[in-house]
């Protein structure tokens, strides 16, 4: 019964979003632009070299495509949505319903993830193929890559929801959205694989939660390695446990504020 109700929430939300398919497809334009810019950037940086830190230009472009799909489908923008729920009082309404707010939000995020992944995945992978052709990929590794992406989805949700719920204390959470987005872009290795950074930066960034929500799963896609997969699983699990606790703490403290305001 419990699972069924959250499944229904996810399904209803997907059906709602399908009507705005063009709006989602428009993100494909940004992904295309980013891939085009990075292809030019890598061409300039490689300047005749065949590989850079083990990546060919084609693998770099596919890495960008995969990382862009992860960021758009796992959805950093939930920070703003959850912030709006707090600001407008929608969150208070859920207290009257037999659903848990966090569970409800996760169902929406989870449902949207599949919907966005299909649309943006098709767009990005077609663009990557047109720009640089295919790269070697073993379909036997696909299930492991999918598991790592799901881990990224859960980790990203825990961090985004925690930041969105800070709206209980800060009215507007857009600033947190901008900053977290840049954490993922730069520290998480979305724009540039962490291997390309200076050694000192690699040593730090590879252990941060942002890289487990982005770089590690994206790298598994272009360079699968069993040891890297195990490292990704351990890292994701550790950070998920920590951020579930943070999310629970913020949610409890925030909900208490709803009562104080006379809800």
């Amino acid at each position: 019964m419990t699972i069924t109700k959250y499944y229904s929430i996810a399904k209803t939300d997907i059906l709602e979003k399908v009507t705005a398919v063009w709006s989602t497809a428009l993100w494909g334009v940004f992904i295309g632009i980013a891939m085009f810019i990075f292809m030019n950037l890598w061409t300039a940086i490689y300047s005749g070299k065949v590989t850079l830190e083990g990546f060919t230009i084609a693998q770099m472009v596919w890495y960008t495509a995969f990382a862009e799909v992860i960021v758009f489908s796992t959805g950093i923008d939930w920070i703003n949505d959850i912030g709006d729920h707090v600001r407008t009082g929608i969150i208070a309404n859920t207290l009257l319903k037999p659903v848990n707010y966090i569970g409800w939000q996760f169902s929406v995020v989870f449902g949207n993830f599949f919907y966005r992944w299909i649309i943006l995945g098709i767009i990005s992978f077609v663009i990557a193929y047109v720009l640089v052709g295919s790269i070697p990929f073993s379909f036997a590794t696909l299930p492991f890559v999918v598991i790592a992406v799901l881990g990224a989805l859960i980790l990203n949700f825990c961090i985004s929801a925690s930041l969105g719920l800070l709206a209980f204390w800060f009215e507007d959470v857009r600033a947190f959205y901008w900053v977290y987005q840049k954490f993922i872009f730069v520290l998480g290795g979305m724009l540039v694989p962490i291997d390309v950074y200076p050694v000192w930066a690699q040593g730090v960034f590879k252990f941060l939660p942002f890289s487990f929500a982005m770089y590690h799963p994206a790298k598994l896609f272009v360079h699968f390695d069993t040891r890297a997969f195990i490292t990704t699983m351990i890292g994701q699990l550790a950070w998920i446990i920590l951020f579930v606790a943070v999310l629970a703490l913020i949610y409890r403290a925030g909900i208490r504020k709803v009562n104080i305001h006379g809800g």
Partner: peptide
């Protein structure tokens, strides 16, 4: 709306710092 004003201004400032940090890292390599 001081709180909004301050958080948005600081947020954008940090946002900008990260862009230049990306280029700092790349030009180190």
């Amino acid at each position: 709306y001081r709180a909004n004003f301050v958080t948005q201004s600081i947020g954008m400032f940090i946002n900008d710092i990260f862009w230049i940090f990306l280029w700092f890292l790349l030009f180190q390599r």
